[in-house]
């Protein structure tokens, strides 16, 4: 898939899903085939700030320097359009992920944080890379979620605007993790009781 064309994004609240907070991002040519979760996640990040690498024109030439702090396309740009507009979808904004990691925070400093990364693109089985990430690389919204053990996705890819401009982007998005419910607590306690019973027959 050269560039993702996006037609539908439905927000999902607490996912029990560990990998994304969007339910479906559909391919226009094949509406039942969901796009990779990487793209879904990268899209979520457009709600906050993104860090944008030099813009690349269609011919591959750079159109400018790095645009740190520049807001990415608003989520509304990716939201579903009426069926009548579908013929214009070729020009709609899209994101193509080249590389993605999942990370968790192991240290937080004054100007940077340290994270262990699992390379999802390489299908790594363990988190065998460590990154030192400047705090300026994350949006204000995500800064509020920064904590030891916090889990995030880091996506590097090309963002194509509606006018066809292609930008290389690096986006770090912290996950909204599920909330512990009364039911979780009850299940945990019941599991513990049963485990203790089995351990001490």
């Amino acid at each position: 898939m050269a560039v993702a064309e996006l037609s539908t994004i439905a927000h999902r609240g607490d996912a029990g899903d560990s990998k994304c907070t969007f339910d479906s991002v559909l391919d226009i040519d094949d509406p039942v085939k969901p796009y990779s979760k990487s793209i879904q996640l990268a899209l979520k990040s457009s709600l906050g700030a993104s860090r944008t690498a030099p813009a690349i024109q269609e011919n591959g030439h750079s159109s400018g320097g790095r645009e740190l702090g520049q807001a990415s396309l608003p989520l509304s740009a990716y939201l579903p359009r009426p069926a009548l507009q579908r013929k214009h979808l070729q020009a709609r904004p899209s994101l193509h992920a080249l590389q993605e990691w999942e990370g968790y925070v192991i240290e937080i400093g004054e100007t940077e944080f340290v994270a262990r990364l699992t390379d999802l693109t390489a299908n790594a089985k363990v988190e065998d890379e460590e990154a030192v990430i400047p705090l300026e690389e994350i949006s204000d919204d995500d800064a509020a979620k920064l904590r030891l053990g916090g889990i995030f996705r880091w996506v590097i890819g090309y963002e194509r605007s509606g006018t066809g401009t292609k930008k290389r982007v690096s986006q770090i998005v912290f996950r909204d993790l599920p909330v512990v419910t009364k039911s979780d607590m009850r299940e945990g306690e019941a599991w513990a009781r049963e485990t203790l019973r089995l351990l001490n027959p």
Binding site: Q99, E127, E129, E130, P134, E136, I156, S170
Partner: peptide, 25 residues
Amino acid sequence: SSGRKRISAVERTIRESGISLRHSA
């Protein structure tokens, strides 16, 4: 460095973002 080979656009973006990446083990 992480020791893992990646396409040049990814390597370039990592460098430009100021993020340092290395093997954790």
